[in-house]
Design a protein around this nucleic acid. Structure first.
Length: 368
DNA sequence: CGTGTTTGACCCGCGC
DNA sequence: GCGCGGGTCAAACACG
């Protein structure tokens, strides 16, 4: 109670806050779209390669677990925020919700996550903007499953099983996509997120497809395809669009594909390779991702421009203390002007260039 | 001393 | 119009 004697300043605070809510016209859409990642994680927060500052904590209604609010501190003006909350049903499950788009260079480790969320968010916005009559449909839970070497990617409409973090749901909740890494899952894979910031994730964007698509993967023996089969009802939810990518099965038999990356786990490696394979072997898929990220970043420029961290001309790098060390174990610390550049460059670089740290192993098993 | 976290209050949008 | 709840702020505090 004695805390708040700042009411005069509050007026200005309020003004600036409402400004910041509207700020970034280019990211207006992006700010509305949110991407949640559900993962088993013992750590208080997932390390995604970015640097965050906690600015608040709140106990949400209907959830005894407090929700923590973080904002990206790599750049002072970065609008990206994330919310971290434990699942009341299973305290080991951590839900991290990202909102907004970074407006500054990112290290690879962070870019991977940013790309993922951006692409997912773009998928959301793309679908919600193109779908019609979404409020009139109450679709049952429908799912779309892809299988890559035993890893299931399930994209399902959970509109009827409303996420707990939006207890009263409805229009209050911005369109949100959930990447569900919890079901049955590869705990080591998750732990890579939670403990070591060296996960070279990737970006999945299913937005531009309308039919069953199979992306070949060069390894494995039976299900050598990433099978994407969008269910029509997916894009029609009362919330705009809500979906889940469900990495529901731990790949067994992780042999042969594991590279010699310093400290990556086999499952992480496999996962990375899996995704990389899909992307590198499916140009159209790359395109979709690139376009998605391009949209999110608000720049149609697809030029890759690389810049070493540590002494970038814009000064950002100096602010990201700890970031370099975070990225060190697995990545040569690159940043790029645009997340899309980073992702796509990392793909192409890893194919033939030595610029990328070999441990990204994106080029592993490339079957060209 | 600098940086990050905690925490109570305030703002604002939405539902009733 | 009112109340509720989520999101945010910033002073105080903790920690290295």
């Amino acid at each position: 109670m004695e805390k708040d004697n700042r009411s005069p300043e509050r007026r200005e605070v309020k003004t600036s806050r409402s400004e910041s809510k509207e700020e970034g016209s280019e990211s207006n859409v992006a700010k509305r779209a949110r991407v949640s990642i559900r993962a088993r994680c013992e750590a208080p927060t997932m390390h995604d390669g970015c640097q965050w500052r906690k600015y608040g904590q709140k106990t949400a209604k209907g959830n005894p677990c407090p929700r923590a609010y973080y904002r990206c501190t790599i750049a002072p003006s970065c609008p990206v925020r994330k919310q971290v909350q434990r699942c009341p049903q299973d305290m080991s499950i951590l839900t991290t919700t990202y909102e907004g788009t970074h407006n500054h260079p990112l290290p690879v480790a962070a870019t991977a996550m940013a790309s993922t969320t951006s692409a997912a968010a773009t998928m959301l916005m793309s679908r919600s903007s193109t779908s019609q009559g979404l409020s009139s449909i109450t679709a049952p839970v429908t799912s779309t499953t892809a299988n890559i070497n035993g890893v299931n990617f399930t994209l399902f409409d959970n509109s009827t099983t409303r996420p707990y973090n939006f207890p009263n749901g409805s229009s209050l909740a911005p369109p949100t996509i959930t990447l569900d890494l919890t079901t049955n899952t590869s705990t080591h894979l998750i732990n890579r997120f939670s403990q070591a910031p060296k996960f070279s994730s990737t970006s999945l964007d299913f937005s531009s497809s309308s039919e069953n698509i199979k992306f070949p993967t060069p390894w494995g023996n039976n299900s050598n395809y990433l099978n994407y089969n969008p269910s029509p009802p997916f894009n029609k939810t009362p919330f705009g669009s809500i979906g889940t990518l469900d990495f529901s099965k731990q790949p067994n038999g992780l042999t042969g594909n594991v590279r010699n990356s310093q400290s990556s786990s086999p499952s992480q490696q496999l996962f990375t390779e899996t995704i990389a394979k899909v992307l590198t072997s499916a140009p159209s898929f790359q395109h979709a991702v690139a376009a998605a990220i391009s949209n999110m970043v608000g720049s149609g420029n697809s030029t890759n421009s690389w810049r070493a961290t540590g002494n970038g001309p814009n000064g950002y790098q100096n602010q990201v203390t700890g970031l370099a060390t975070m990225a060190k174990p697995s990545f040569t610390s690159y940043t790029s002007n645009h997340s899309q550049s980073t992702l796509m460059s990392s793909l192409s670089h890893s194919k033939g260039s030595s610029s990328m740290a070999p441990s990204t192993s994106i080029d592993a098993n490339n079957n060209q």
